[in-house]
């Protein structure tokens, strides 16, 4: 039991000097720590081995490093950054060109085909009377056309175009947007 508790138990007032003595103890402890010293250990430099003539060697080493880095480090990194951005653009550009060559814009060809086809050819292709799933097919075509920002004109569509436009749709789009069960 500490002094304060003992005093409390005796219902005595804690003497004023008690706090001062506590404060002094803490202060002494802190000062003792900050002045702590293990005799003979402050000059540790003498204990570490350093090669003879080292300080001059260090100076020469710094100069050699500076010579090797005659361009500031951040300039080099900026150049690298620019080069990598340029290379990225180049790769993206080449990829787009290659992609377009391999996959020509289907919509464009499809549009051109529709434009060239005669009305009778188009009507024959759609053949509303014969197709059992025509409504569904038309819905899909409408969705595909919407995706490609093309006006929906069923009377100008051909059978292959309807099939193609269905191919353009993903399975999810068919199931989610057309509510097929």
């Amino acid at each position: 039991m500490n002094l304060k508790d003992q005093a409390n138990q005796r219902k005595e007032e804690v003497p004023e000097e008690f706090f001062q003595s506590q404060f002094d103890q803490i202060l002494n402890k802190t000062v003792a720590i900050s002045n702590w010293e293990l005799p003979g250990t402050r000059k540790v430099e003498a204990c570490f081995t350093v090669p003879e003539g080292y300080w001059l060697q260090m100076e020469n080493g710094i100069r050699a490093k500076l010579k090797a880095n005659s361009e500031p480090a951040f300039e080099i990194s900026r150049q690298w950054k620019l080069a990598s951005v340029f290379a990225s653009f180049l790769i993206i550009g080449v990829s787009i060109v290659v992609f377009l060559k391999i996959n020509p814009d289907k919509t464009e060809n499809w549009n051109a085909k529709i434009e060239k086809a005669s009305d009778s050819e188009i009507m024959a292709a759609i053949d509303l009377e014969k197709s059992e799933n025509q409504e569904l097919a038309l819905q899909m075509v409408a969705l595909s056309l919407k995706k490609n920002d093309i006006l929906f004109q069923p009377e100008k569509l051909k059978k292959e175009d309807i099939e193609k436009s269905i191919d353009d749709l993903t399975e999810n789009e068919i199931y989610n947007e057309l509510d097929i069960n």
């Binding site: 293990l38 003979g40 250990t41 540790v44 003498a46 204990c47 570490f48 081995t49």
Partner: peptide, 14 residues
């Protein structure tokens, strides 16, 4: 002991 040749107390402190 290659890097430091101080006495024992120096080594213990390090």
């Amino acid at each position: 002991g290659h890097q430091m040749n101080g006495d024992e107390i120096q080594k213990k402190l390090q």
